[in-house]
């Protein structure tokens, strides 16, 4: 696999009127094309800040990151679906295309196809309030995929869902990402989710966060996230990452 993204010595300090808070300290990572990398860490450690920097809506205090492709399209999916309640499902799905003025016939057809593939086309004229939490999250993913991103940044995309929906939607999202072959960086605080969905799990320390360990996930009979949880190596990875995270309960 070739390298898509090279993150070098990224640090981030937030400056308030009274203090300077160090959120990220010297993070260096390489992201392979087509891979799924999940970043885990305790809450508030700076995981989401890293995604904000990579998406371009925030800046690093020092360090840099480089994509191997010129002007890559970045898709960012947030913790909540952030669907606009006054727009229909179809209008929500094409929002990114409209904003980027890429709502060509071909791209709109692509969105229709995605909605159809993921069993949402019958809700095209409905509103987000008519959909379940899992369905809304799928629409949010289609809105992101509509732009045909080179890299997908997922910021705890299932955290707003209940446990069962979470399992089902993560399975769906995994299938979609794999099928479309999109390089993905996901942020999660759920160790099981990270192991079951990813090729690599990056463990971050507490704030100021730095890379503590990187695990390449090698599961026998790698399959869907739900199936991956049954693999015998799953619990070994789980225990190791749990230890690394040093979670005090």
């Amino acid at each position: 696999m070739s390298k898509l993204l090279d993150i070098k010595h990224i640090s981030k300090n937030y400056i308030t009127e009274s203090e300077s808070i160090e959120a990220i300290r010297d993070i260096t990572l390489e992201i392979e094309k087509g891979s799924i990398t999940t970043i885990v860490g305790s809450s508030g450690c700076g995981k989401s800040s890293l995604l904000s920097i990579l998406s371009g809506i925030d800046h690093a205090t020092s360090g840099e990151f480089k994509f191997s492709k010129k002007d890559p399209v970045i898709g960012y999916m947030l913790q909540s679906d952030a669907l606009f309640p006054w727009l229909t499902i179809y209008e929500n799905a094409i929002l990114g295309l409209k904003i980027k003025k890429k709502d060509t016939f071909e791209n709109l057809e692509y969105v229709k196809r995605l909605l159809d593939t993921y069993k949402l086309s019958e809700f095209n004229d409905k509103y987000p309030s008519d959909l379940s939490g899992g369905m809304k999250q799928r629409v949010a993913l289609i809105r992101t995929l509509a732009l045909k991103p080179d890299i997908l940044l997922l910021d705890e995309p299932f955290s707003a869902l209940d446990y069962q929906s979470r399992l089902a939607v993560s399975d769906d999202v995994y299938r979609i990402i794999r099928k479309e072959g999109i390089t993905t960086i996901m942020v999660s605080h759920d160790i099981a989710e990270a192991i079951s969905m990813s090729d690599r799990v990056v463990v971050l320390s507490k704030r100021p966060c730095h890379v503590k360990k990187i695990y390449t996930i090698l599961l026998s009979n790698k399959s869907t996230p739900i199936e991956n949880r049954k693999a015998k190596e799953f619990s070994i990875y789980y225990n190791k990452i749990w230890k690394d995270l040093d979670i005090n309960v």
Partner: peptide
């Protein structure tokens, strides 16, 4: 959150 979404969409 919606504001952040629009920012990410440029």
């Amino acid at each position: 959150v919606k504001l952040k979404l629009l920012r990410t969409l440029g």
